[in-house]
Design a protein around this nucleic acid. Structure first.
Lengths: 295, 295
DNA sequence: CAAAGTCTCTGACTATGGTCAGAGAATGCC
DNA sequence: GGCATTCTCTGACCATAGTCAGAGACTTTG
């Protein structure tokens, strides 16, 4: 495959140069792990289990690092009021100050890198970095079948509904929309695809199967993860699942406010058709005929 | 400064994603340090001091890692014939085999990253990676004043002459060219600038000062480091040094085969003039008037 | 030829990052 | 209410990465 050598060369160079930058904030008398933790806690505080998940830390190791920061007087920890097993940590004023210092050092390291370049080199570096970053994230996104009742699925659906409420002219009240029961999105009656980035849900999409057609529902991508082609990947996966079930036709409806969704559907081969249901929040109805040959 | 946030965000994402890729070749029962060393030794073998310099290792640490690899039967080490203090290491057949395995694993990791992208995403990722890599390297290049007699300077000059010999129609014999003594490139009579990338010399340039003008000599950039703007930086540094000495005019001559050098001179404000010396290898003579105001 | 410097190796030491098993408290599920 | 699960913490442990001082062999320089 072309590109492998380029990727490897990139890896070598970047680990070396970025490593050199990262060294800068050693020199505070704190380990890299503790500094990363301080960054991850952030000004707003966080649950410990969330920190562990995001940094991929062993529970014992995380606990020790946190106790170290607590001994330094940088953080405070206390039990969550809603679930006393979960502990929360927040920065103390001293912790906020230290985080500000780390941020300043990081800024300076980045600036010193940029300073060694000419203006046009700087511009192209920044834009290329942005591209690499987005595409690396895109390649780290995983799709998997999920039970629509799971916590992750429910949180996606909730955020999806929130967004609909904010974007639809008339707001959005799920009870007025055509209902979709969880069982209808669970095999064998349908399926629910969850997209995750480092374990965090960043998008979803569902398929409800009828005798003669399938319906695409719950297509949503988190705002932070847009532009990575996740929506298209979810849609393709759902279509593949529909093909395996020998469903010949896919249908979906959408609101006029969701212009990027319409663009996705159109560019994925969906054609607008006359309304096939009386969904009160829909303005556009689409369908796509599937080739059910092959597996 | 604009771009700092982008650089920092890039660093976060890249260390995470590339780190995940690098984990793949743990799983051989060998430390990352030892694997890196194996890569760095390469099929052709290497001097130990060179390995240390390139990987930035402490001599004790390097020695221990090498003994580990030797105990595994992957490398062999022996004293250099030209300087018995220096030790050389080469891969044994088993070492070559192991390096091939590591290369395959790295290739697979890179391929799996690319495989998760669409064709057009892949193309833009590779081109953006290439840009980032080149520009990070460019920003890692350092210029410093060097004694032209030093080993590093001499090796640059030797490689420069080799290249001239290869590229000039008539070949190149330094003894036929106008001689330049090392003292003429040493303060106070002149200066020699060396460009290094991670400690390795990758380019040079020199200034020879006369009463009324300065001469630019020995402008060279290693083939592996071209396209990073190093030549331009060296030239600018030499001009700055000339300005400080209140030299009003810079001159240089060059061969017609060195087209990229001519492009650099022209775009840096040098104008072609009639021959001011009888350098047998020159086809073009340039000069640039300096503004000697300022410090 | 002596002194200074280079290169490698050894031994002693340290911090960091990380794993594992288990305990205790709280919670959710039947 | 009982049981499995979740979450955190503790103690014991380990490998890796790295530092430092010094010794020995060799080379360059004056």
């Amino acid at each position: 495959m072309p590109g492998i050598a380029e990727v490897r060369s990139f890896n070598r160079v970047v680990t070396r140069e970025i490593g050199a930058l990262a060294d800068r904030f050693l020199g505070r008398d704190r380990s890299l792990g503790a500094s990363r933790l301080l960054f991850e806690i952030g000004p707003a505080g966080s649950e410990i289990r969330r920190l562990r998940a995001r940094l991929g830390l062993d529970s014992g190791y995380a606990s020790r690092l946190l106790r170290g920061l607590e001994a330094e007087g940088l953080i405070r920890s206390f039990a969550s009021t809603s679930d006393a097993r979960v502990r929360l940590v927040t920065l103390t004023p001293a912790g906020r100050k230290e985080l500000a210092v780390l941020n300043r050092l990081s800024d300076e390291a980045a600036a010193s890198l940029l300073n060694r370049l000419t203006g046009s080199q700087r511009t192209s570096l920044i834009s290329a970095m942005h591209t690499v970053e987005r595409l690396l994230l895109a390649s780290a996104v995983r799709l998997h079948l999920e039970n629509p009742r799971s916590r992750a699925a429910q949180s996606c659906i909730a955020r999806y509904f929130e967004e609909l409420a904010a974007r639809f002219e008339a707001g959005f009240d799920p009870t007025l929309s055509i209902p979709v029961a969880a069982e209808e999105l669970t095999p064998p009656r349908g399926c629910f695809i969850l997209a995750t980035l480092h374990g965090e849900p960043v998008g979803c999409g569902a398929l409800r199967c009828h005798a003669a057609c399938g319906e695409i529902k719950r297509m949503w991508v988190a705002p932070s993860a847009r532009g990575l082609g996740i929506g298209r990947r979810i849609l393709q996966r759902l279509e593949e699942l529909a093909r395996r079930r020998r469903i010949p036709l896919l249908r979906l409806e959408t609101n006029k406010a969701l212009s990027e969704a319409q663009a996705l559907y159109r560019s994925s081969g969906y054609r607008e058709v006359s309304p096939f249901n009386d969904e009160p929040y829909a303005h556009h109805w689409f369908q796509k005929r599937l080739r059910t040959r092959g597996r």
